[in-house]
Design a protein around this nucleic acid. Structure first.
Lengths: 92, 92
DNA sequence: TAGGTATTTAGACAAATATCTAAATAATAA
DNA sequence: TTATTATTTAGATATTTGTCTAAATACCTA
């Protein structure tokens, strides 16, 4: 288990340890969404959602691009491969 | 995504969101260990380790059996399959 | 430029969590 | 029984985390 993988896995577990953030990822699985679109899907405030998006972004579970005044978020599944690697290592 | 799976995945993510608990699982991957053996592998106190073992046990990531005055812990990988299922669902 | 919309940042606060020490429980050995 | 060893439980505390409101930033449009 490389130090790099341990570092990534730590961040990813932190990011995934929240129901709201996991639901955000599930929304983004269907299609890219603006921060506002995502916020509307939940009962919590926009600043809170923005904070969740920041955590997901730091864990590289989402990427974003600016389009005018909007910020569009996309799911990024590449780190999930690292997570799977960690789990499989535990299993065998 | 069934309610049952969501419930399990939530507990498993909670349990795995800690470096010490992840290291405990890695130790148990090699062989079954008593609570005391596990505690000796870390700098933190026995009560703290006991608490971590309780959280891992609640998430069904470990099982335990009593043997005299000792409590022997074992890794249980069955819930990891549920976790993998959750991740794969996100990926495709 | 002025006003409006989208989003983030800053700062505060309550709840959750990881840790500790001290005490309790359970099993063994003398 | 008494003492010893293994482990957990209880209660306290400091840190982390999720949430909020208010303010700042960034972009667009008239």
């Amino acid at each position: 288990m490389s130090k790099y993988l341990i570092y990534i896995v730590n961040k990813v577990f932190k990011a995934l340890n929240d129901q709201t953030r996991r639901e955000i990822l599930n929304l983004l699985k269907e299609k890219d969404l603006t921060a506002g679109d995502i916020a509307e899907a939940f009962q919590i405030t926009k600043p809170s959602i923005s904070h969740h998006l920041d955590i997901l972004s730091q864990a590289e579970l989402v990427t974003y691009r600016k389009q005018g005044q909007f910020v569009i978020y996309s799911l990024n599944t590449t780190v999930l491969d690292d997570l799977m690697k960690w789990i499989i290592t535990l299993k065998d």
